[in-house]
Amino acid sequence: MPSIRMKAAASGDTTEVQALVQHPMDSGFVKDASGNLIPPHHIETLVFQHNGKTVFTALWGPAVSKDPYLKFSFKGAAKGDALTATWIDNLGKTDTATAKIA
């Protein structure tokens, strides 16, 4: 099951992007039910690319909420273009998804 849900909609020259990523974003400060510290496990970077160019990069620490949400916008894309999002976390896990700009 893909971890990234992304919506990208163009209006004129501006494309509005909303992304929701499924990820625990464990901070490393929280203990589990048996009192053991849950080690940090969080996304470090989330990169958005359009036409091979990086339009937006999120650098995240463990203070970003669980199942992170991100909203941004950029110019220069057209309806039908592909927008790719890729994240990588502190354990080296990664996922990528592509959305068609509506």
């Binding site: 901070s27 970003v64 916008s73 950029f74």
Partner: peptide, 13 residues
């Protein structure tokens, strides 16, 4: 990046 508008929204702890 080039073309990005200077605004962002997110959720923090």
């Amino acid at each position: 990046g080039e073309g990005a508008n200077p605004a962002v929204g997110c959720r923090l702890k």
